[in-house]
Amino acid sequence: MPTAEIFRALGDPIRLEMVQRLSSGSSYTLTSVSTNLGISRQGARKHLDVLQHAHIVVLKPHGRDVFVELEPATFDAAKEFILNVEKQWDRRLAKLKLFVEED
């Protein structure tokens, strides 16, 4: 899963709100995760499709309901990517400091 797609999928306030709801630990269905977002059901479904495509959420049919769940593994990819970039900058800045502080 390309990290880029994860960041892009999260770069939207509606989708971020959905993800925040889902990360609360409560279980959500397609309907409940889509309510009170100030958008239509069809609109909410489009946002869910983006999240699903980026493997951020999975849809799990159960009886008459479809439950929406997060896919934690996806975030490890994003986490690792960001950590690496941060580490690289820390190393570079440390070298910059050494250089400018030498006499």
């Binding site: 390309p2 490890d76 990819a77 990517f81």
Partner: peptide
């Protein structure tokens, strides 16, 4: 977030905490 899908392909890591 502007990254194209073909850039930055990262490995999956199954550790939790992400």
């Amino acid at each position: 977030s502007a990254y194209a899908a073909d850039v930055a392909q990262e490995k999956f890591d199954m550790n939790s905490g992400g």
